[in-house]
Structure formats: structure tokens, C-alpha cells
Nucleic acid binder design. Structure first.
Lengths: 122, 122
DNA sequence: ATTGTATTTAAGTAACTGCTTAAATACTTA
DNA sequence: TAAGTATTTAAGCAGTTACTTAAATACAAT
């Protein structure tokens, strides 16, 4: 885009940055996709609840969050498609839980900011 | 919503969860707002670049990310409104940098997932 | 003062998100 | 096999997002 003609622009710096961004294109796409999943208030609550309770069914989540089952189900699908949660079926009930790989990320989300539920309800 | 009439639902568990969610309503709203900011691929790259280079102007970012200046400027505004970045003015140039308070969160975003730029370019 | 540079703001728009309701699927039990 | 329960899927729609282009603002230099 090069809209600026400034003198102090360090073209070495610019080119280096451009390279880093290009070389890691995939990383940024993947990470932003996952972070965006947690950037929705309902999904963040779902992740928090699954983390705390180990596993819950759509019906539980519907009761807790006071939302319709289809609304919950659609969020669960996004989280599952994103590889953040997994499911196990028992009879007609489907239990969802956080994929163990993603747990550290979640723990950090919830422990990082002061005044988090973890601290309050410790 | 209580759409399910299942026998095994633990109403104590449900009520406890409901309480935790309600008591921490503000926390979830605030955290999801910030996480959503980083959940956009362009903004994630901007945050990464500001973190790595210490500070950059909209013009630099436009060059690096190959996007128009207004597009960059609008992302910077959202990040600034969200309290994630700050700006300093020198002549006609405005330099943006990550608020120090938010740095730990960012470092984690970028270091957490295997194959991150940090590791690749160490 | 006038011209030029850096940035923001504003208006318009295409694409995406998250809900709703209704219908479909799948399992269970009578 | 019929009726009921748990869940998903699909269609529709209001609200939001992220870009585009054009205009406005602010500082610098001649």
C-alpha cells in the first residue's frame, strides 16, 4: 500500500516484518480462529463450565446459561469443529468436555486477569 | 429453558453453575470482549508486530500487512478503545504500542501453541 | 498562506454471526 | 412399533464486522 513517503521508515525493519508475517501466515490464521471461538461470551462461558465441571450435556448448558438448546448446540458445534472440545455419547445424552490439549490455553484465559472466577471462588 | 426432563440432571450442580456464571457476569463480558479483539487475524498480527517491534505507526503496519491505511487505522482504534494498545504522537506520526498491562496475555497467546513464530525464529 | 504528508472519520456495502422456529435424526422405553 | 426424550440440522433474519472510497483533520515545510 505504501501510502506514506516518510523518511524515517526503516525499510529493513519493514521487510523483515513482512517476511515474519508471511512465513507464519498459517500460524496467525489458526491461532486467530481458535481465539475468536473463545471471544464469544457464550462460548467463553461454555468453555469455563466444561473446564470446571469436567463434562456437561447440551441440556445442562441450556439450563445453566438460560438459552435455547439449538443455540447451545450450534456453539458446541463450532467449538468441536475448532478442535477445542470433544464429545462422548451415552444413550441419548451427549457429554461434551474440553480437549486436554487445549486445557492450558483455557486455564490461562481464566487465571490471567485479576478478579477471575478462579480467584473469587477459590 | 429446561427443555430436558432427564433423571440424572444434578440440580445442585446446575444451580451452583448458574450462580457462578451470574456472579461473574462482568468478568465474562470483559474477558470475551478483549479476547474477541485478538480473535481477528489482522488484529492478532498487529498485536504481534507491536509486541515484537515495540512501536509502529499506521503507515508501517499498512506497508507490512499490505492493507489500506484506513483499514489499519480502524483496527488500531478498536484495539485502543479496548485498552489493549496506546499511542504517542511525534509530529504528524502516531506510534502505537501494546499497553504494558496487556503484555503477559499477548506473550501467552504467542508462546502457547506449538510452532509459534517465537519458537520458529528464536 | 499554500502545499504536502500522516492519520482519522464517515458513509456505504458485502459477508458473517448468532439467534429464532421448525423439522429431522437417533436413541429409549412402553 | 409407537410415543417420548435428547440432540442436531436447516432456513430465515436482524445485527455486527471489516472492508472500500471519499472527505476531513492535523501537523510540517516551503
Amino acid at each position: 500500500m505504501s501510502a506514506c513517503k516518510r523518511i524515517f521508515a526503516d525499510s529493513g525493519q519493514i521487510n523483515n516484518c513482512r517476511k515474519v508475517i508471511k512465513d507464519n501466515q498459517r500460524f496467525f490464521a489458526d491461532l486467530s480462529r481458535i481465539v475468536a471461538l473463545a471471544g464469544n461470551e457464550v462460548r467463553l462461558k461454555i468453555l469455563f463450565l466444561l473446564d470446571e465441571e469436567r463434562e456437561l450435556c447440551p441440556c445442562d448448558l441450556s439450563d445453566i446459561l438460560e438459552m435455547t438448546i439449538p443455540a447451545i448446540s450450534q456453539h458446541l458445534r463450532k467449538l468441536k469443529d475448532g478442535g477445542v472440545i470433544q464429545s462422548r455419547k451415552t444413550g441419548q445424552t451427549i457429554f461434551y468436555s474440553v480437549c486436554t490439549v487445549q486445557l492450558p490455553l483455557l486455564k490461562l484465559f481464566f487465571s490471567m486477569i485479576s478478579g477471575s472466577p478462579m480467584e473469587i471462588n477459590a
